[in-house]
Each structure stands twice: as structure tokens, then as C-alpha cells.
Nucleic acid binder design. Structure first.
Length: 270
DNA sequence: ACTGGATCCTGATCGC
DNA sequence: TGCGATCAGGATCCAG
């Protein structure tokens, strides 16, 4: 479910309900996420006020008076604001019960997500991350430096969180199409102009998706239950076998790092 | 130092 | 209708 726009949409959905609230309780039904939820998380978090909820990469950071909770939605996670008396459904692993009788309910069927504790702002998961894609540090000059010595497929490079965070399979696929770059092109072989275009398109598509409330694929819902924008707006992702909107050529796909990559063989010639 | 591949898990979908 | 194979939005870890 969550690429960066979905995580940001989730954050914006819960902030009005949760920021400034005290955590009455943390109810854990299943600790076995990607990493086990720490056994002392409840003791550490309960009765503390949520000072802010921020996002770094696809991690949601719940800053408390002392320490913070780090939450990742993985591939299939979602947060909903519900009345605490609402009976939990399948895969509702955690409730963060707030002082206003509402709770943040964490559902994650595949359990690739995580909920961790950190005493301060530094945490191993956050320390090696590259720049945020929408910030100025992520620019054409920066990406040119990163691709200069790399023979990797360009798609692997832009999906590498050490290079730039938050660019998942959907938006990487779309941005490469918009920039006219074949996903398997060796990073160092791409012209400076195309790298600049790629940076522009990554920023544009992420901004657009955030403004539209994230991409709806299968079950993604915003925290109020309304769907985000629909997958039909995507140009190539999931359109293998259909025609390119620009040139009518049939969209093909290949596999890069176990991820499906759709592309137009005409517009994204190698 | 890099990089590709395996891996964690459940659910939806598709072909037979 | 049932069953098995295949495919999914992520990202760490490990072997070569």
C-alpha cells in the first residue's frame, strides 16, 4: 500500500486527531511484525503526550515528551482513527488509545511493517537515509553525482533509500516513463539532461499524488475511509500489454530486483 | 565496495 | 467450487 504519498496522506489524516493528545494505553494484539514490538514499548509510551507526528522517508515518527515511536506501514499496513470500542478486525495488531476515546488502529495483513521505540532522534533505521525527494538537497546535480560511477539499473538507483527516500515501485516506474528513460538503463550512461528531467518528474509526481491523497490500489484508504485517487491515472504502472498514451506502442515489462517494471519500448528506448 | 537475490507474511486473482 | 501457482505497495541482510 504505502509509498511516500500514502504515508504522508496517512500522517495528515491522523495529526488532527492525535497531536497534543495523551496516550492512555497501547494495546498490542500481535507483536510479531517485521521486528517484534519491544516488550517495554507500552510502559515507555503510556501516559505521555504526543508532541508531534512527523514523517522521515516512509517512517512515521510519533514524538513524545520523552522518546519516540517509529512506525512503518510495510507493504500492506494502514492506520485508521476509530472509536476505541469498535471491535478489532483481522490483522488489527495495535491500538494507540488516545485521551479523547479515539484510537489509532494499526492493521497490517502481511506484517512487514514495524513499531519500534527510540529514546532520541537517532536510530539505526533513520541514520543511513538519503535526502527527502521533495527537499532541495535532492536535485539534478546531486543525482548526477550519484549515478556517475554506478553501473546499476537506474530504477534500482532511484529506489535505493541511501540515494533518495520514498520512491517506491509505482512512482519510480511512472517517473522513468515521464523522463523517457528505460528502467534497465545503466545509471552512468544516462545524459545529464535526462537525469535532470528524472529529478523534476520524481518531485512532480510525488507532489501530485500527495495532493490527490495517494494512489488507490486494492485496499488503500485514507484514515477517514475515503479512497485516494485512482490507479487509472497511472501512465505505465500496471498497464503492461496495453497501449502507450503517447505513441500507442504496446507497453512491455521486465523485472528489476524482483520488482515488475513496465515501460514503453518506444518512449523509453534503451 | 557493490550488487543481486532471498526473505519475512497474507491475500487477491487467474488458469485449470 | 476448489486448488495450486503467481503476483503484490518495502527494505534488510547476506553471499559472491
Amino acid at each position: 500500500m504505502p509509498e511516500l504519498p500514502e504515508v504522508e496522506t496517512t500522517r495528515r489524516g491522523i495529526v488532527p486527531h492525535a497531536e497534543g493528545q495523551r496516550i492512555d494505553a497501547v494495546i498490542i494484539r500481535n507483536r510479531s511484525l517485521r521486528w517484534p514490538i519491544p516488550s517495554d514499548l507500552q510502559t515507555l509510551a503510556e501516559q505521555q503526550k504526543i508532541q508531534s507526528i512527523t514523517r522521515r522517508s516512509k517512517y512515521l515518527l510519533f514524538k513524545l515528551e520523552h522518546g519516540m515511536m517509529i512506525l512503518h506501514l510495510g507493504m500492506s499496513g494502514s492506520l485508521r482513527i476509530v472509536d476505541q470500542r469498535t471491535p478489532p478486525k483481522k490483522h488489527d495488531h495495535v491500538d494507540i488509545v488516545l485521551g479523547n476515546a479515539q484510537c489509532i488502529r494499526f492493521n497490517d495483513p502481511r506484517r512487514f511493517g514495524c513499531l519500534l521505540w527510540s529514546d532520541d532522534d537517532s536510530h539505526a533505521l533513520l541514520s543511513k537515509l538519503g535526502p527527502e525527494p521533495l527537499q532541495r538537497e535532492f536535485n539534478a546535480k546531486y543525482l548526477r553525482t550519484k549515478v556517475a560511477s554506478s553501473k546499476r539499473a537506474i530504477k534500482s538507483v532511484i529506489m535505493d533509500a541511501a540515494v533518495v527516500v520514498g520512491v517506491g515501485n509505482i512512482y519510480a516506474t511512472e517517473a522513468l516513463y515521464m523522463a523517457g528513460i528505460h528502467p534497465q538503463a545503466a545509471a552512468h550512461s544516462i545524459s545529464a539532461e535526462k537525469i535532470s528531467a528524472l529529478v523534476r518528474h520524481i518531485k512532480a509526481i510525488l507532489r501530485y499524488a500527495i495532493n490527490r491523497g495517494g494512489t488507490t490500489l486494492r485496499d488503500f484508504l485514507q484514515t477517514d475511509g475515503k479512497p485516494g485517487y485512482f490507479a487509472q491515472e497511472l501512465q505505465v504502472y500496471g498497464r503492461s500489454g496495453e497501449c502507450c498514451h503517447q505513441c500507442q506502442t504496446v507497453i512491455e515489462h521486465c523485472t528489476i530486483s524482483q520488482r515488475r517494471s513496465a515501460y514503453c519500448p518506444q518512449c523509453q528506448a534503451e
